[in-house]
């Protein structure tokens, strides 16, 4: 099953999107966004995998060993950092919206005014 990792990526993305679409709670919505985003971590790592490869750390590894792609791993690191901080920012927004409107349900909140 060489396609299995990619199917899991799609499953995570769809589960996250389903949660976002049907969300009745802003905190739940941010969590679902994080689930959807975690599919991108898996996608990047799956793409960078090389059959039989080891971690790209050359210490005490024979010179001809296969290694997985370090560039996509560095991209995944960036992805995780940005995802975590943006989630914190969204949660801060959710908290202040709740204080203003008294509801966590994104469907019942009155429209934003500038």
């Amino acid at each position: 099953m060489t396609i299995l990792p990619y199917l899991v990526v799609i499953e995570l993305l769809l589960v996250g999107l389903y949660g976002i679409a049907g969300s009745r709670n802003t905190i739940h919505l941010v969590s679902c966004l994080f689930v959807a985003q975690s599919s991108t971590y898996l996608l990047l790592l799956s793409i960078g995998y090389v059959q039989g490869g080891t971690a790209p750390i050359t210490d005490e590894i024979p010179g001809n060993a296969r290694m997985v792609d370090p560039v996509v791993q560095a991209l995944t690191l960036t992805d995780i950092v940005v995802g975590a901080t943006v989630s914190a920012l969204l949660l801060a927004f959710a908290l202040q919206r709740y204080k203003l409107t008294g509801t966590m349900d994104p469907r019942r909140e009155p429209p934003q005014r500038g």
Binding site: L4, P5, S46, I47, Y49, Q51, V71, V72
Partner: peptide, 12 residues
């Protein structure tokens, strides 16, 4: 997508 485990990126 490239087949799983068969990626040949230019930069890695």
């Amino acid at each position: 997508l490239p087949p799983f485990g068969g990626y040949r990126g230019a930069y890695g």
